[in-house]
């Protein structure tokens, strides 16, 4: 049995797009390059900095930028998936801070590195899971619940350190400072995480469930998706990635000091994800966009340092970049068919 409505056949689709599809202004072309506007901003910033400060293109500096953005990238990757599913986690940076402090203390007490890695990742996962439980089984908005846990965890991190700095000697320093074929280990870890996230979002049912949940949770539930289970998994995943970011940061710094990572780091990651075009309301997000967002923020931060801009202006500029990027994204979304 085949039921077709003959006259409704979209013969137009095959026809020459010629006259009808002519764009009226150039900005209508932008949507055809994904993240075109954003890439343009990134290139402009990079070129401007390279011209203004020679140090920008030195390999030392570039490696430094790569190491810096790698940590943010790991957090941002988890956040992209979570936000696509309509969730939000403000506590990942603070989770990273707690992990970092606990790991430092344990290492300082002579635990073996593998044991510390396992313990801290488990701890981070549990923290994420608790967030997930609160968000899923109470009706508290993720925004509120995770903001609360961010503050709470920032406090816990301070308690763990007890106001002191804890150094870990040269344990884990290879991860933080070495490189293979000119690429820092940290960056390789970050790229792996990003790639896995990207593949998950595109090619697995788990990832597509995230899109469905973010797009319309009711429909997702009614279609037989275990929405609660998925949410728990996603928050736990955000937790474990936060833990990983904490360990990466520890390996780079070689010490845990008060107020490392925390809410400020998280806000940078959130900004990067939003710049990358992931929807705050859920249902839409790409890892590519997040990568561009992370790199853009990293490069801007670095440029401000190199150009010796007064540190008071740095936040102002970063905020400005966030705003401009968000506006560019919105333009592209509006002018593309099917919003």
């Amino acid at each position: 049995m085949s039921l077709k409505t003959p006259s409704a056949a979209p013969d137009v689709a095959a026809g020459p797009p010629g006259d009808a599809g002519r764009p009226r202004s150039t900005y209508r072309r932008l949507p055809h390059i994904p993240h075109g506007g954003l890439l343009l901003v990134l290139v402009l910033v990079a070129v401007f900095t390279a011209v203004q400060a020679d140090a920008f293109t030195s390999s030392q500096n570039l490696l430094n930028v790569l190491r810096q953005v790698s940590v943010t990238a790991v957090i941002a990757a988890g956040l992209t998936l979570l936000m696509t599913a309509g969730g939000m986690d403000f506590s990942m940076g603070s989770n990273a801070a707690v992990t970092l402090c606990v790991a430092a203390q344990l290492l300082a007490r002579g635990w073996s590195t593998p044991a510390v890695v396992v313990v801290s990742l488990v701890l981070a996962t549990l923290i994420g899971l608790v967030n997930g439980l609160v968000v899923t089984y109470t009706r508290v908005a993720p925004f509120v619940a995770t903001l609360a846990s961010a503050m709470l965890l920032d406090g816990v991190a301070l308690l763990v350190l007890d106001g002191m700095s804890v150094t870990i000697g040269d344990k884990m320093s290879a991860l933080g400072n070495d490189e293979v074929a000119g690429v820092p280990y940290l960056t390789i870890v970050a790229l792996l995480v990003l790639a896995l996230t990207g593949v998950t979002m595109r090619f697995t049912t788990f990832g597509r469930d995230a899109f469905a949940m973010g797009g319309n949770e009711h429909v997702a539930r009614l279609s037989g998706i275990d929405v609660n289970g998925r949410k728990l998994a996603l928050y736990a995943l955000a937790g474990v990635l936060a833990g990983l970011a904490g360990l990466m940061l520890l390996s780079r710094l070689g010490a845990a000091a008060p107020n490392t990572a925390g809410l400020q780091t998280q806000l940078t990651a959130v900004a990067a994800v939003v710049i990358g075009g992931t929807s705050l309301a859920g249902g839409h997000g790409t890892v590519t966009g997040t990568v561009i967002g992370v790199v853009l923020l990293g490069v801007v931060g670095n440029a401000l340092n190199l150009l010796q801009v007064n540190s008071n202006y740095q936040l102002v500029v970063t905020g400005g970049v966030l705003l401009v990027a968000a506006i560019v994204n919105e333009f592209q979304r509006k002018s593309s068919p099917g919003h």
Partner: peptide, 26 residues
């Protein structure tokens, strides 16, 4: 309650069916 507006036609068509079939890959 019916469709995820932002997902494609094909994905919406198979949203429930693929979940029943317990597909892991997309």
């Amino acid at each position: 309650l019916g469709l995820v507006q932002g997902l494609t036609v094909d994905e919406n068509l198979m949203l429930a069916g693929d979940r029943f079939a317990r597909r892991r890959l997309h």
